[in-house]
């Protein structure tokens, strides 16, 4: 590197530093759609009302074009005996748990994407293929997704599923809150199909109020907890139950948004690109001085 003198070194360094700093404002805010509207919609799942008919499973599959047996096949209650999870073939499933109050009437709990208010998947997705919209839904964009499955790693509820057996175009499969149906002014398929309206669809704010009213009016019927009101910073889908949520296999999660720590670290490292640029400048300085010293040594010798 003899042909290069110190001045050109300095000049180029400065140019690069300025260029990097210039990039800052436009890039620091790059990210997916993540809107937390006060008017976001949600669903209140009252597990004390649910009868485990699994009509929601059928309606969901039908609405999403997934393979399903006819509705009357769902009268068979044997699948409830086994713990199931939403997967690429079923975006929602109903699980059954022992009822300490009424042994003959087991508790049934519908499971699907919770549509978090601060979704870990949205924060995690490498290309911003998952977005939280103003109407509460957390939806996945097939045109962006690269199939890295980081959303599945990030999700605290273990909801997103992946089509592992597709060689081309495998999809991330999860409840999309019936994005298309709702855009057409319809209810989510599961909510529409529920015979006992264990699923109440409405503005999340209203639902939380209704849930509180129900608990207040029937303190014997419910435990005093709305799951999803505060968990991981709140979820658009909330649950009421007559027994401890732990015994219904709801994950015990903190009240902080799931992406919180990760994002603060991330934004700490990249605070307006200051740390990387400073490091660059520092290393440049070190390089320059060490070379300077080296050159002087050479000149002296």
């Amino acid at each position: 590197m003899k042909s290069q003198n110190r001045r050109s070194f300095l000049k180029t360094s400065t140019a690069i530093t300025v260029a990097a700093t210039g990039l800052t404002p436009s890039t620091a805010h790059a990210g997916p759609t993540n809107i937390l509207s006060p008017d976001r919609m949600g669903v209140l799942v009252d597990t004390t009302v649910c009868i485990g008919c699994r009509n929601c499973e059928w309606a969901c599959k039908t609405a999403h074009g997934l393979e399903t047996p006819p509705l009357d096949a769902y009268e068979d209650r044997t699948p409830l005996a086994k713990m199931r999870r939403p997967d690429e073939t079923a975006l929602t499933v109903v699980n059954q748990y022992e009822n300490p109050k009424e042994p003959d009437l087991p508790i049934t709990v519908k499971v699907q994407c919770m549509h978090c208010d601060h979704p870990a998947c949205v924060s995690a997705c490498i290309v911003g293929a998952i977005a939280k919209h103003a109407n509460g839904e957390v939806v996945w964009d097939t045109d962006k997704c690269i199939g890295c499955r980081y959303c599945m790693v990030a999700c605290p509820f273990q909801v997103p599923a992946f089509e592992y057996h597709k060689a081309l175009g495998p999809r991330i499969m999860k409840c999309d809150f019936c994005s298309e149906r709702r855009a057409d002014g319809k209810l989510p398929a599961c909510v529409e199909s529920c015979p006992v309206e264990a699923l109440t669809y409405g503005r999340r704010e209203d639902l939380v109020r209704i849930a509180k009213e129900r608990i207040k009016r029937s303190p014997d019927r419910y435990v005093e907890h709305i799951y999803g009101e505060a968990e991981v910073g709140g979820t658009s889908w909330c649950y009421l139950a007559g027994t401890d949520f732990d015994s219904l296999q709801f994950p015990k999660l903190g009240l902080n948004p799931a992406p919180g720590v990760s994002e603060s670290i991330q934004h700490g490292i990249f605070a307006y690109f200051v740390p990387p640029v400073s490091l660059y400048a520092l290393l440049g300085a070190v390089m320059w001085t060490s070379r300077h010293r080296h050159d002087e040594e050479e000149e002296q010798s």
Binding site: G31, S123, I126, K144, Q266
Partner: peptide, 15 residues
């Protein structure tokens, strides 16, 4: 779609 991250940015994603 490996090239997607070049165009589609998500600043909050560690990945």
């Amino acid at each position: 779609y490996i090239w997607h991250p070049l165009l589609m940015w998500n600043g909050s994603s560690a990945l």
